[in-house]
Simulated assay, not measured.
Amino acid sequence: MRSVKVVAYDSIWQHLYLDEMNKLKEIFKGQMIEIFHIGSTAVPGLVSKPIIDMMLVVKDISQVDLLNEPLIRLGYEPKGENGIKGRRYFQKGQDNRSHHLHIYQTGDENIKRHLAFRDYLRTFSGEAERYGHLKAELAKLYLFDIDSYIAGKNIFVQVMEIKALDWYDVQLEKKEQLILKFP
């Protein structure tokens, strides 16, 4: 049975992401637009389940299914959309999961949601700390119940996502104004 393990931030996570990113670039060359380290392991100082979440943005999501075989050879298990329409989701490491791969087609609204949440937590350390405390407490309460752990975070994450998206939109608007001001 898989346990819910939340641990202190580890700078090795960035290196694990970069290593995996290079492997994925080889598989998705010609199809990949961008790749991002997302989730709690992408936020310095934030406690996390030690699983590297990555988001790959591709030109055509329908082409991803043709690349399942090389991903399987790399250790990934295809999970289809797994509850999010338009996404392809993969897990690596079975019960000792090490990586989650979320793949979206360029323009998908979930790309912005993931980046806004990550960048908001990177910018507002107090919010990241609150989130970390919640995750640590839930991990203690639901050591062998990942579904209850996730459900326990759900409302907090939904509220945080709304705040993050509002903040992110303001940041994008400021960048656009600077670009217009200084062409």
Score class of each variant (00 low, 15 high):
Lys5Val: 14
Arg73Thr: 01
Ser125Ile: 13
Val43Leu: 11
Val57Leu: 10
Gln94Ser: 12
Glu127Phe: 09
Gly80Tyr: 06
Gly126Ile: 00
Arg113Asn: 10
Tyr17Ile: 01
Leu24Gln: 03
Met160Cys: 13
Ile52Ala: 10
Ser3Glu: 12
Asn22Phe: 04
Ser98Met: 07
Met21Thr: 03
Ala136His: 11
Val58Met: 07
Lys163Gly: 02
Lys23Gly: 00
Lys5Asp: 11
Ile27Cys: 11
Asn154His: 14
Pro78Asn: 05
Gly30Asn: 09
Leu71Met: 11
Asn22Tyr: 06
Asp95Met: 14
Met55Ile: 01
Met32Trp: 02
Lys112Ile: 06
Ile72Leu: 07
Asp108Ile: 00
Ile162Gly: 08
Gln31Glu: 15
Lys135Arg: 13
Ile27Gln: 09
Tyr131Arg: 09
Val58Gly: 07
His37Lys: 06
Ile12Asp: 12
Leu121Ser: 03
Lys5Trp: 00
Ser48His: 05
Ile35Pro: 01
Ile33Gln: 12
Lys163Tyr: 07
Ala139Ser: 15
Pro70Asn: 09
Lys23Pro: 02
Thr123Met: 14
Leu101Lys: 05
Arg122Asp: 00
Gly152Trp: 06
Ser62His: 13
Ile52Cys: 10
Ala164Gln: 06
Leu143Thr: 09
Glu127Thr: 04
Arg118Thr: 05
Gly75Thr: 05
Ala139Asn: 10
Tyr131Asp: 03
Leu71Pro: 04
Leu18Ile: 02
Leu172Arg: 15
Asp65Gly: 15
Lys85Asn: 11
Leu172Asp: 07
Ile155Glu: 15
Gly80Val: 05
Phe144Met: 12
Ile51Met: 12
Gly30Asp: 04
Tyr149Gly: 07
Ile38Trp: 04
Tyr9Trp: 14
Arg2Tyr: 06
Asp108Ala: 14
Ala136Asn: 11
Ser125Met: 08
Glu109Met: 08
Gln94Trp: 08
Val6His: 10
Leu46Val: 02
Arg130Glu: 13
Asn82Thr: 00
Lys25Leu: 07
His37Gln: 05
Gln31Arg: 08
Tyr76Ala: 05
Gln14Val: 11
Gly132Ala: 09
Gln177Met: 15
Thr106Ile: 15
